[in-house]
Design a protein around this nucleic acid. Structure first.
Lengths: 340, 340
DNA sequence: GTGAAAGCGCTAACAT
DNA sequence: ATGTTAGCGCTTTCAC
């Protein structure tokens, strides 16, 4: 592991010139630049990021905190962020909070504070005031994805509007008896996602003058299995069976599709089903859904952060950026059977 | 951000004593230790990992390289590794190679070399000799998961034995016409996984004196959809339809279950199906499978690495550790219909 | 048990 | 355009 000194010696210049030549910032003559570059290559020199960080105060490393790792959505955001950061020469240090309360505390009270990272991306995490204070005290940029965070630049999707769009799609097909599979209370903590989606659903119905029927609501845990069980309940009684189901996530919607099949119901002839996400499995199941582009979200978060780290290039930005979403119509939705 | 100096001043000791008290290694009197600890807490002091790394040469940071991020298997390994590392005070810096060849090169030629990490875990990656040389030249521990790597301590599963076990389960139920959905050539590069599993399948058949029928083999891409398509082919002609399918992954096996259902076949009455993985969805689908415990694999890799980083505690270990696997019988397999 | 001081490898003034 | 030099914040001999 040769140091900068070795390169300087071989190139016949000072260490300062080596540093300048390699970083490309300052003015260096073509001649010395070439000498440095070829000396560096010859020796296989790579800067010590620690020494560099210590000297500059910048680490070129971003901390990313996720609530789960084994869920498609989070890993997709992560993938987007990782590749954007990598292409800018940044490393990504990962903190997964899935383990439980203790892990969470140590991440926020210890790991993130030891100056290993230049900035933090928090994915779908509603930070406590204490956590937030700790982070902001670092005086480093923080970007949140998934919901508003006080004093932090965030990227978030309008969950109410997303749910409205999904519901309106069903309404526009002519459905009037539309059930909703939402999230349980456990998922409220992250930006009230279940409530917001339910509000969107209800407001779309009300806008069409359709009364909300509480009997057509079921809560589940955002899993395939949860969606399956909920749908079985919803579809159980042939008497007042809905003609459509709006599930708050694709995984639950896919569960609902499987439940319908198991009950001998045809999708979409007997029952239309729509979800939210555009999950990797959704195309396979022909699921109509409102896509939210998690990989793009990760990329946007990373780029927003890099912007803030390089104020020269900084474009003015609002404190909360709206994330795009889009209705993707596949084969799980259709007009309700006319015979009803 | 108070420094060690501030703590020393408040505690009325030297910076050296603070360092000693905080690291707990050296002898420090109870009195100064208490003084240091409370001063540190009062100021909210957290060491600068960069300064510490520079001084010690150790970063307490592990680089983890994965080929994909959005696959259940890899994220599970990652989760296991992350939580094990975190609990030992280590950070995890993530490098995802899914982006393409260029990313891969820059990770190996630049990112991993800049002394940011103490060691590297390579998950399901067959490193090129060049990559391996570069890593080993760092003189840092490297642990591979998923297959043998020359000169590297690896954790790997005996894919041949796993496939044999799955096939033998079907044989023991009385099946003699067993199809196999394997992987396409694209997946060969990572330790010849498709080939090994196919070998296990064939050797199990041969051990029972059952000739291998090439017509009962289909290759797919390890996805649900791929398994679905392959199964449709396999189950298409009622004349020589197999009574069982062994798929090289649970996702493909689940695809096969869905294909069977779509064709009006009952699982397991008409067709038994077994996979490999114990994927998060497998229980829901009642899939019989050979579990390989990815989270445990990640945890083991992390612990192996930490062992190597702390030679005092080091237990002697072989260069290749076998990973556990276990048959999980659910409802997708049964005796073949007696009537045949 | 504790302090003084010499680095760890690099960057950024400052001088030339 | 380039060299000299003073740190960055910690750890670790080496004395005492």
């Amino acid at each position: 592991m040769p140091g900068i000194q070795a390169v300087a010696q071989l190139a016949g210049v000072s260490t300062a010139t080596v540093s300048r030549a390699l970083s490309g910032k300052s003015n260096v003559s073509e001649k010395s630049k070439d000498a440095v570059l070829s000396a560096a290559k010859e020796l296989g020199y790579v800067v010590s990021s620690n020494a560099s960080s210590l000297a500059t105060g910048r680490t070129r490393n971003i901390g990313v905190v996720v609530p789960f790792l084994t869920k498609w959505f989070y890993t997709s955001v992560l993938e987007g962020a990782e590749s954007a950061l990598l292409s800018h020469g940044y490393d990504l240090t990962l903190y997964n909070l899935a383990g439980g309360g203790d892990e969470r505390r140590s991440v926020f009270e210890h790991f993130l504070l030891r100056k290993r990272v230049d900035a933090v991306i928090a994915i779908s995490l509603e930070l406590t005031p204490k956590e937030l204070t700790g982070l902001l005290a670092l005086d480093k940029p923080v970007v949140g994805v998934g919901g508003p965070l006080r004093g932090v630049h965030t990227l978030s999707i309008d969950d109410v509007a997303v749910a409205q769009l999904a519901t309106e799609h069903l309404l526009s097909l002519g459905h009037t008896s539309i059930a909703h599979i939402g999230g349980t209370k456990d998922f409220e903590r992250d930006f009230h996602l279940p409530t917001n989606r339910r509000i969107g659903y209800e407001s779309a119905l009300e806008a069409m003058g359709i009364p909300v029927n509480p009997g057509l609501f079921r809560a589940a845990n955002f899993s395939l299995e949860g969606g399956y069980d909920a749908a079985k309940q919803l579809l159980g009684s042939p008497r007042d069976r809905p003609t459509a189901i709006f599930a708050a996530s694709d995984e639950m919607a896919i569960g609902a599709i499987l439940a319908a099949r198991d009950m001998g119901l045809s999708v979409p002839d007997d029952i239309s089903i729509v979800g939210i996400d555009d999950h990797e499995l959704s195309a396979f199941f022909g699921l109509t859904t409102v896509a939210q582009f998690p990989e793009l979200q990760g990329r946007m978060a990373a780029e927003l952060l890099l912007d803030q780290l390089h104020p020269e290039t900084r474009k003015p930005g609002s404190i909360n950026t709206a994330l795009p979403f889009d209705l993707v119509v596949r084969s799980s939705t259709a007009r309700p059977r006319s015979g009803r």
